[in-house]
Design a protein around this nucleic acid. Sequence first.
RNA 1: UCCCCGAUAGCUCAGCGGUAGAGCGGGUGGCUGUUAACCACUAGGCCGCAGGUUCGAAUCCUGCUCGGGGAGCCA
Length: 484
Amino acid sequence: MRKGRACARCTPWCSRGSSMAERDLPRGRIVDILARGEPGTAVRVEGWVRTRRDSKGVTFLELNDGSCLANLQAVVDAASPVASAAAAASTGSSLVASGRLVASQGQGQRVELVPAALTLLQAAPPDYPLQKKRHSFEFLRSIAHLRVRSNTFGAVARVRNALFYATHRFFQERGFIFLQAPIITASDAEGAGEMFRVTTLDLERLAREAGALDWHADFFGRKAGLTVSGQLEAEVYALAFHDTYTFGPTFRAENSNTTRHAAEFWMIEPEIAFADLADNRALAEAFIKTVIGQTRETCAEDYAFFEQRIEPGLLAKLDGLLNAPFETITYSEAIGLLEAAGEPFEFPVAWGHDLQSEHERYLAEKKIGRPVFVIDYPKDIKAFYMRMNDDGRTVAAMDLLVPGLGEIIGGSQREERLEPLRARMAALRLPQEEYDWYLDLRRYGTVPHAGFGVGFERLLMYVTGMQNIRDVIPFPRTPGHVEF
RNA sequence: UCCCCGAUAGCUCAGCGGUAGAGCGGGUGGCUGUUAACCACUAGGCCGCAGGUUCGAAUCCUGCUCGGGGAGCCA
C-alpha cells in the first residue's frame, strides 16, 4: 500500500476516477479476459492505448497490457462520464479502465469493455514515436525502449520467454543438472572466438605510460575475459552428474557485422556422459522438436502473427520439422553432393575445406530440404577437444544445418582418451599446463561423452521467422552498439 | 575486417542540373459501432556533414559520419 487512502488491492492513483467498488476489482489480464471473460463481469485492466477510433457517438480504444498480442476494445459512448478521458487517450497513453464486459456488437472480438471509470495516467503527446502505422525494423531498433510495445516485438518477447522456459523444462524433465557456468574466465584457447577483456587496470594511465603490461597486477593476477563457451566446465559436471547443461549469456568480441551475430548472446550447452555422437544427435533432435512443439502450443496467437506478417509458410516449415526425422550425412558425403550439384559456387568445394554459407544453404535448402546433421569433419578444421575417429583424419563433430539460417547447432563427441587429447593439444601448441584440470577429467574416471551448443537467438530467429538477430534480443550488443 | 547499397517531412519513400513532393502518421472539423475505420482541411524540410564542379546542386564529384545487406569468423 503506497497511500493511506488507497485500498490494498489498488494502485494509489486510480482513486482519481473510480468508485470504491471499481477500485476493489482485481486486475484482469487482457489475455484472460479475451479468452474467458463473460459478458456482465466487472473487470479492471491496466495498460496502454494502441489506437483510438472516434465516431460521432462513440469512441473505441484498443488497450494492450502485453499479456497477449490482441487488444481489448473499450467502448465509450459520447454520453459516458469517461468520454472526455477517452477522447484524450491518444496512442501510447497509459491508463486504468474499470467496467463491465459486454458481448461485442461488432465483428472481430467476442467481448469488449464498457468502462465506468477511466483514469488516464498519462496522455502520450502526439510525437509518441510508435504511431499506428508500419515501422521498419531499422527504425524500431533505434527505439528499443519503446519497440516492445509493438505487435512484432511483443510477440518476439513472448515467444522468447516461452522458449527460455521450454528449454529449462526439457532438460529438467530429463534429469539434467543445470550448471551456472562462470561468466568470467581465463580460458580463451578453445578457438571459439575473441574474448572481451575483464580488467581493473587503469587503462587510461597505462595508455599514457609506455612499457609492458604486468597482468600480475590485474584483479585476477592474469588475463581474464568474458566466457565464450561454458563447454569445458560443462564437461566437469557431465563427468559427475552424467547429464548437465548450461544456459547463459555468452560473449564474442569478433567484429562481426551480420544478421546472425551479436557480441552478447545466450547459448544452451548440454553435455552428456556415457554417450557418443549418435546419442548427441538424438538429444539435439529431441531438444529442437520438443521446445518448438511446446512453444507452438503456448504461443499459438503469436505464431499465427509471424505466419501472417513475418514469414508466410512458417507454420508449414515448423510442422515439417516436427514431423520428419532429421537427416544425417557425413562431411565426405556432403562434399560429394556439392561436387555433383552442378551449382556455380563462389567458393571451391574440396575435401578438407570448411563448408561455406552457400554450401550449407544448398545442402539444407535445395538438396535435403529440411534440417540435416553434417558429421565427421576433417580434424584440421575443428576444435582440439573433438574425438578422433578411427580413420585418423576426421573427428566426431556434428553441425545441424537448417533451411533459411544455416548452422544452428554445433557439437561433438569429446576426446575422452588422455594420450590422443595430449597429442592433439601438442600438435596445436596449446599450453597444457593451463588445461591441467581439463586433462584430469581424462585421468580420473574418464568416460565417453558428448555435447553441443545451441545459439538461443538463432533458434528464436528460426521459429519466429525474424531475419535479424538484433530483432530477437531485447537490447542487442553489436560492434559499435551498446545503447540502452 | 572486406565488398555492395543507402541517407530528402515524425515514419516509408519519389524527385536525379532550373521555385521541395506523395503516402502514412500528427492537428482541426465531419461522420449513428469502429477495428490498417472513413471523408475534408491543415501544419510540418540546414534534401546526413564538409569541401568541390557549375550561371545555378537534393540531383554531378571527393572526403567524412551514420545506417542496411552480403562475405569472413561462428552460435
